[in-house]
Design a protein around this nucleic acid. Sequence first.
DNA 1: GGGTAACTGG
DNA 2: CCAGTTACCC
Lengths: 259, 259
Amino acid sequence: MLRVATWNVNSIRSRKELVFMWLERVPVEILCLQELKTETHNFPFLDFERLGYKCYVHGQKAYNGVAICSKFGLEDVFKGIGDAKFDVESRVIGGRLKDLWLINCYFPHGEERGGKKFYYKLEFYDAFCKFLDRSFSPSDKIVLVGDMNVALEDIDVYDPVVLKDTIGTMPEERQALRRLLDWGFVDAFRYLYPNKVEFTWWDYIGGAVWKNQGMRIDYIFITEHLLKSLKDVFVDTWARKKRQPKPSDHAPVVGVFEL
Amino acid sequence: MLRVATWNVNSIRSRKELVFMWLERVPVEILCLQELKTETHNFPFLDFERLGYKCYVHGQKAYNGVAICSKFGLEDVFKGIGDAKFDVESRVIGGRLKDLWLINCYFPHGEERGGKKFYYKLEFYDAFCKFLDRSFSPSDKIVLVGDMNVALEDIDVYDPVVLKDTIGTMPEERQALRRLLDWGFVDAFRYLYPNKVEFTWWDYIGGAVWKNQGMRIDYIFITEHLLKSLKDVFVDTWARKKRQPKPSDHAPVVGVFEL
DNA sequence: GGGTAACTGG
DNA sequence: CCAGTTACCC
């Protein structure tokens, strides 16, 4: 069994205790983290080592930052997407475990429609697709995980009417995310559960998590070769609902594979 | 027995747990606090009430702020020194318990010799003496406590050579503080222990507390009528040496009276 | 609402 | 070194 988790932790320094508590509950083999909000040298390598994880970290001060913590050593580890315009930010890290590629990405938030950050988000998706074209083939075994900052369908938000034209739900963004599916990925959660309403992110404001007012913006995408190995995908809201230590606004998503 | 304590807590919001732990050790009847660093409405009135204290609070956002927490109700509570120039900051609070006046003051730090804040400190002392002249008589029973931000004598600093011309030790400042003694106050600690070397403040920097590199800048001053009632004065370093919760850089000073 | 940084006061 | 602040990001 191979369990691959993705979790936007919103600062690894302030969240590491929670992460280790969660790993006791769900000791996944591979944990992909986003929004480390710290430089690589501040990453808690030793704490993860004690639990048997080797960590591959692409840190950044204050913003972004991604890591893969794996029980198995990775090869061909890469950072960024080979595009200088976007690689000034630490949003992508990947590597290979035998014939399985892992890619962990923190896609831009976008802020609001029409602004500079909104176009940056769309352009990032564009650049990411080009990176896929250059570096991979849809016939590869690839697990692409991360915070995509887009809810794919209306079923992926708690209220599509209330959230109309809010960031993460707009047609341009959904189209950008769908290009990853068009390229050759399958949304593992939706593949197994076509009608299930589950969210991975809830705003800190107004106790949204208690009213389950969330969005599904964190994903496990897999290429077709992996579909037969996919056993389950689940969102663990335990860590999001904890009050002490304080939670991230995202919950971890876990994919279970039998390879 | 009446125990009166003075403690610069360096933010009551971040120090309240420590204060309540300390009150279990030394349940003083009257606790005078300085550097609340918060507005009056954020003061933890309820926590103190649970322990039987009535609190008189003169708060301020971010800087200064003083309070008297008393097991007995006070009358004629006043805030400030009646001088608009200095009363824009919350540095003084006082009140009367029967025939005993309590005055709690946080004197300015002064930063360094020659600067604006240095003259402000000296002028504050001047204005404070004028306030005493206007409002009190040396024949009154008065307990004046607080962070005076001045070490009276060389014996009150860990190394007068090293600290020469550093803030809190300079002749101008000592002269300003001595004017309170000239007015009619007695330094209760020094009265009982003429040769004792004890400090009330240690810099956070460089682990000064562990090397006992401190200064005595927090005082219990009393008028002559109270000398016969004075039983003891002690500095409790317990709270300063605690690591969890984090300490203030000042230790509480306690005066014990038999009235 | 919760994290970061840079600044200021002590 | 340890508080507080404002400003920025999500």
